[in-house]
Design a protein around this nucleic acid. Sequence first.
DNA 1: CTCTTATGAGCTATATGAAGACCATTTTTT
DNA 2: AAAAAATGGTCTTCATATAGCTCATAAGAG
Lengths: 112, 112
Amino acid sequence: MPKSITRTYSRYSRDAAALLGALIREARNERKFTVQELADRAGISRGLLQRIEKGNLKCEIGAVFEVATIVGVKLFDTDESALTKYLRQTKEKLALLPKSVRKKSKAVHDDF
Amino acid sequence: MPKSITRTYSRYSRDAAALLGALIREARNERKFTVQELADRAGISRGLLQRIEKGNLKCEIGAVFEVATIVGVKLFDTDESALTKYLRQTKEKLALLPKSVRKKSKAVHDDF
DNA sequence: CTCTTATGAGCTATATGAAGACCATTTTTT
DNA sequence: AAAAAATGGTCTTCATATAGCTCATAAGAG
């Protein structure tokens, strides 16, 4: 990323990532996987998995989701079929909405 | 990412990211935010937000969580207090577990 | 219709996330 | 006790995700 961006994260985001990491670690221990084994299964490095388990926010979401999936940590509290179904519904719903958000151009002042 | 890693993602991971992106877009439209506005609030670029909404798996999880938080998409279907509470419990639980996973050294072969 | 603006896609430069080493510590096995 | 394995750091190298533009299209407002 150019221009050296220093990101700030909300407490909620940090907690969510920390929780997800803790759940992954818990599930990994329950399944008797070592860090190395799980990393291998997920196709990532050991170091990355350790960062994920610590709740590091600067990891790619695909790696995190993949690890979570392997050890059985459910995202969205739904199983796969329900997830797919809900995904389709959501996309259909979006297709019906206006394609772009348009601000009331003049003097509506819904900022109060 | 050195050595040109080509990651493969499970269907569940792809669906989860796609759903999260769709939920974000839906919430953004409901709150009448333009892509640019939400990106500015989250401190990310417009292009990154567009990729997040499309469910791109190669975004950093911090950016995705931050955007989700801003528009009110709840991760883990719990509110902030419940999240924090559960996080503490999970960490306490982990502290009680063995610090390392140890394979039965000989011929257990629970790999199947 | 015209005008305005949001969106989507493509491009480049660069900051940085990830891999793959290494080593120290901790934990479990023998 | 020793040995072996898992974990958790640090460091360097490098592929790439990101920011920050463009431009084209789409779509709402007047």
